[in-house]
């Protein structure tokens, strides 16, 4: 048998208004003001009763914080008059719905195109090209944006990461096996 053939597997952000990830029945909900300085505090509040096995150190906090940050900063543009709602359910798995009051993630398709080029460069081991594509820069990106939160998110949320049609609401799920999904 020859060596296993390398395959390029491309994930992408998906829009599906009627996806079951948006069914909030039985989920708890908290609402927050759009205060950038309190993003990690908001996340900690949502995770106050989270089982220790789901936390994986602070990985769950970090990944949820990215979604909260995207809603507050990019969705609501830090407008204190706009609210962020977080539904959560941590029975058997970590599941969240986060909705902002902004105009939606208009760059979603551009981001998918960026991600395809980035992962292709990585697959082809073109590291100079990859490094130049390492961070997404959209029309509204500023110098403090990491530009990579969705890249890790696509891997971390192993039960799905789905946007609604308006692209101002995202549903995510992470499943755990024995408290860890580490391969």
């Amino acid at each position: 048998m020859g060596a296993a053939m390398k395959r390029l597997i491309l994930r992408k952000l998906i829009v599906d208004e009627r996806n079951e990830l948006f069914d909030a029945q039985g989920m708890r909900c908290l609402e927050f003001a759009s205060d950038f300085s309190r993003i990690r505090e908001y996340t900690a509040t949502v995770l106050a009763d989270c089982p220790a096995a789901f936390r994986e150190g602070n990985l769950l906090e970090q990944q949820l914080s990215e979604i909260v940050k995207n809603g507050v900063k990019h969705g609501n543009r830090n407008d204190p008059g706009k609210r962020l709602r977080v539904w959560f359910d941590m029975r058997k798995r970590a599941r969240f719905i986060v909705e902002d009051e902004g105009e939606g993630f208009k760059d979603l398709e551009a981001w998918n195109d960026f991600f395809r080029k980035r992962q292709t460069a990585l697959f082809e081991e073109d590291f100079d090209a990859f490094l130049s594509l390492a961070s997404y820069r959209g029309p509204r990106s500023d110098e403090t944006d990491g530009g990579n939160s969705l890249i890790a998110a696509l891997e971390y949320w192993n039960g799905g990461m789905i946007f609604n049609e308006a692209k101002n609401k995202v549903g995510v799920v992470r499943w755990f096996t024995g408290g860890s999904t580490e391969a």
Partner: peptide, 20 residues
């Protein structure tokens, strides 16, 4: 360092880009 988020990863990317 116990916590690194996407802004931290972005910082490392910028530093990698400049160093290269």
């Amino acid at each position: 360092v116990n916590y690194l988020d996407s802004t931290g990863v972005g910082a490392i990317i910028r530093i990698l880009q400049d160093s290269r």
